[in-house]
């Protein structure tokens, strides 16, 4: 849909309106899907939308969806940028485990918590930079380049923790995972801030356009005078940074670094969130807020399954059925069918 194709047919389309009305944002398939999933949850469990104030924070299933969805949303923010360059980062789950492990081991060995957090974030940056170097300098296909760290990274995390679940009682790390600010859980605040900041940076500068250009055609972008390699390095490093933040949240949440399980398979949820958000794996046009929305759809489904009382054997079946429906709604075929419906502008 964003490939630079030339349409030879005469076009009668009017020039696009300078700004889209807000209603067009609300009738996107992602928003419809999220609302539908939330309504199903509400039907299964009438108290789903009930939010109460307890111990100085908001408390309710809807808050759980936001809170539990935050790590995947944060991963999806970084993943969107990578996928927009026609790449993919499979290592983010393992990087989460590494960052959590580094922070936990440092605080338990007496390092000040802010330093531990900074070192953990730095480790994430380094992991991302490593991926970026493999993709740019060595020109390895992203899926293979990041597969290296996906496999080895979990091993690295296990080396750092020596195979134990390293538990800690440091207030700062625990605050990152379970604290609250203005009544909202910290992970939600972090995800929101990151989403707004990343969106502003890519949309208020040319960066977003450059990322899309590299994603559509890396060689063409380079010939157009764009430093594609530098851009790719930045994008992969950013994905590593996002993964490190998510890793800190997950570790803080259980007050321990579980190298075996932290972030396990979350890279797949993050990719799914990006795809549900409408960003094509072929690169090009992307939307960070939509990817975050995708992460919330996934989590709303997970939370719904938990409170529905279905037996756990159905979890994955229900999840895949819903995802298939969402992807079919987004497919070019259904877009064409929608256009044929009477009453919609041709």
């Amino acid at each position: 849909m964003t490939r630079p194709t030339v349409d030879l047919r005469p076009t009668t389309q009017p020039p696009r309106a300078p700004s889209r009305p807000i209603t067009s944002l609300l009738v996107r398939p992602q928003v419809i899907a999220l609302v539908a999933v939330l309504l199903v949850n509400w039907a299964l469990f009438p108290g789903f939308f009930t939010i109460t104030w307890q111990d100085g924070r908001l408390f309710g299933s809807l808050i759980d969806v936001l809170n539990r969805g935050a790590p995947v949303a944060i991963l999806a923010i970084g993943m969107t940028a990578v996928i927009a360059t026609k790449g993919v980062d499979l290592s983010v789950g393992a990087v989460m485990a590494i960052s959590g492990a580094v922070a936990a081991v440092l605080v338990t060995s007496g390092v000040a918590a802010p330093v531990a957090v900074l070192v953990a974030l730095g480790t994430g940056l380094l992991c991302g930079l490593w991926n970026g170097i493999l993709v740019t300098v060595l020109d390895i296909q992203p899926i293979i380049a990041t597969l290296v760290l996906m496999v080895a990274g979990r091993g690295l995390a296990q080396l750092v923790t020596e195979g134990y679940i390293v538990t800690f009682s440091d207030p700062l790390l625990i605050f990152i995972g379970t604290g609250s600010f203005l009544g909202l859980p910290m992970p939600v605040i972090i995800a929101l801030v990151l989403m707004v900041a990343a969106t502003l940076i890519v949309r208020r500068t040319a960066l977003g356009l450059l990322i899309e250009a590299v994603g559509v055609n890396r060689s063409a972008a380079r010939f157009a005078g764009l430093s594609a390699n530098a851009l790719l390095l930045i994008v992969y490093t950013f994905a590593g940074f996002c993964a490190a933040i998510a890793g800190l949240i997950v570790a803080g949440d259980i007050r321990g670094a579980d190298a075996n399980n932290a972030g396990l398979w979350l890279e797949l949820d993050a990719i799914l969130a990006v795809v549900i958000g409408g960003t094509s794996l072929m690169g090009g046009r992307f939307s960070i807020p939509m990817a975050v929305l995708g992460a919330m759809i996934i989590q709303a489904m997970n939370t719904g399954i938990l409170i529905s009382g279905f037996s756990p054997e159905f979890n994955l079946v229900v999840k895949s059925a819903v995802i298939i429906v969402i992807l079919v709604l987004q497919s070019p075929l259904s877009a064409r069918l929608l256009r044929r419906l009477p009453g919609t502008p041709k």
């Binding site: 309710g60 299933s61 759980d64 949440d253 259980i254 579980d258 399980n261 409170i307 037996s311 756990p312």
Partner: peptide
Amino acid sequence: TRSQTGDFTRSKGKEVMEGFIKA
């Protein structure tokens, strides 16, 4: 009254229990 999988991990155990408590 309720039975769900927590995949033998701490974080899933916490998430599932949160859901149970709400429900």
